[in-house]
């Protein structure tokens, strides 16, 4: 993680409705310039947390800071730094795409017409922007939603389930675009989803929440590069191979050991020299899905 000042600080954030606690003392810091995923099963409190961040829901206890501004006490200051799409980007269908953007542009100081055109070009809607939104496809509405969210060049872009209803091409474009925003323009992107594979491709870091509690924060990019990974060697004599390697477990005809890149090659040479035939070497990556189920418990859970 970077040592820079976090863009979002959630401090003991709690949401209670009646006697029910939806979010329970959530503490989370989001570092700048990353695509930060927010993962959890349905009903875990993802949307509730996001709605509290953007002021659509009140915070029962605790506070959320966007930069230096508290959402509770300096709402206007906090909101000036946020661009968001909460669930589907609902637009005024009787207005054109451009009029919709103009509407939101008027609500934040300092957005010029040139900036609106730039945002429109950015999401590739230039040719259709002066048509009524009711003629737009879902994918085009999603693009318009992104355009309204980035109009004021927010420090933080919050997206709630952004891939819902998008076709594979749309998902891919959105993913590339978010990565670009985060890594080139330094915007922090906070994105919630329950689509694990999607999050794995899109995010640098994920926070996992379950029943209103933070379970874990995982760095996806870092762990993929460095360190030893579980590697399976498929051999003809696994027992002898294990003896040669000096460690590892045996799974059928496979010897599974934790090694890094160089050690893989070394071990392979030693096995070959020891007269053991190696048929295949496979790095066993545990998918985010496996990790997710490890953290949240597999199936059968009750909706929080």
């Amino acid at each position: 993680m970077t040592s820079q000042e976090p863009v979002v600080r959630m401090i003991n954030v709690t949401k209670k409705i009646g006697s029910k606690t939806l979010i329970d003392k959530l503490n989370l810091e989001i570092p700048p310039g990353r695509v930060f995923g927010f993962l959890g099963p349905n009903g875990a409190g993802k949307t509730t947390t996001i709605r509290m961040m953007v002021g659509l829901m009140s915070i029962s206890e605790g506070d959320i800071y966007i930069g230096q501004s508290s959402v509770k006490t300096d709402f206007e200051g906090a909101m000036r730094q946020i661009g968001a799409i909460v669930e589907n980007p609902e637009m005024y269908k009787f207005l054109t795409g451009y009029q919709n953007l103009l509407h939101y542009a008027r609500m934040t100081p300092g957005i010029t017409r040139a900036r609106i055109d730039e945002a429109v070009a950015r999401v590739g809607l230039t040719n259709r922007i002066h048509e009524k939104v009711k003629t737009y496809s879902l994918g085009m509405r999603q693009r318009l939603g992104v355009a309204q969210a980035i109009l004021h060049r927010p420090k933080l872009l919050v997206l709630d389930e952004p891939t819902n209803g998008l076709d594979p091409q749309g998902i891919r474009e959105l993913r590339d675009y978010l990565q670009e925003l985060a890594h080139q323009e330094g915007t922090t992107v906070f994105v919630s989803s329950h689509l694990l594979s999607e999050m794995e491709l899109m995010c640098d870091t994920v926070a996992v929440i379950k029943q209103g509690r933070l379970v874990d924060v995982k760095d996806l990019r870092g762990s993929a590069e460095a360190g030893r990974r579980e590697t399976a060697f498929e051999v003809d004599k696994p027992l002898e191979a294990a003896a040669l390697a000096g460690s590892g477990t045996i799974d059928g005809s496979k010897l599974i050991v934790a090694v890094d890149r160089e050690e893989t090659a070394d071990l392979n040479a030693r096995l070959a020299a020891g007269g053991i035939r190696v048929y295949s070497i496979t790095v066993l990556t545990r998918s985010l899905e496996d990790q997710f189920f490890e953290m949240t418990g597999r199936g059968g859970g009750q909706i929080g």
Binding site: G55, L56, F75, V86, E87, E90, K93, M107, T108
Partner: peptide, 11 residues
């Protein structure tokens, strides 16, 4: 319309 969500997150 659901536009309230985009309307109320402005400064």
């Amino acid at each position: 319309w659901g536009t309230i969500k985009l309307l109320l997150i402005r400064p």
